[in-house]
């Protein structure tokens, strides 16, 4: 399971496929303050990414993976480049 839901935190690990988007959304809807850790995430489907930018949960860490680190950061952190 690439997404592990904790009590008040969620960890994205490995490749997050399109079917993870709905569970993630439901979790974030239920736990608005849950922190998202993405350090170990290697690939993220657009749908998952869309949930993250749409809901804007607090981010604990960005992915280490180069592509996501470079291009997702502005959208996830909400800062204009």
């Amino acid at each position: 399971m690439p997404i592990r839901f904790g009590k008040n935190s969620v960890v994205l690990d490995g490749a997050c496929a399109v079917e993870e988007a709905l569970p993630l959304l439901e979790y974030l809807q239920a736990h608005p303050r849950a922190k998202v850790t993405m350090r170990g995430c290697t690939q993220m489907h657009t749908a998952v990414f869309m949930v993250l930018v749409g809901i804007r949960p607090p981010i604990a860490s960005l992915p280490d993976e180069a592509f996501m680190k470079r291009w997702f950061a502005p959208a996830l952190k909400g800062e204009q480049a």
Binding site: V18, T46, A47, M50, V51, V53, I55
Partner: peptide, 8 residues
């Protein structure tokens, strides 16, 4: 929010 409707 609809996670499967792409608005990006």
């Amino acid at each position: 929010f609809d996670p499967y409707r792409c608005v990006l």
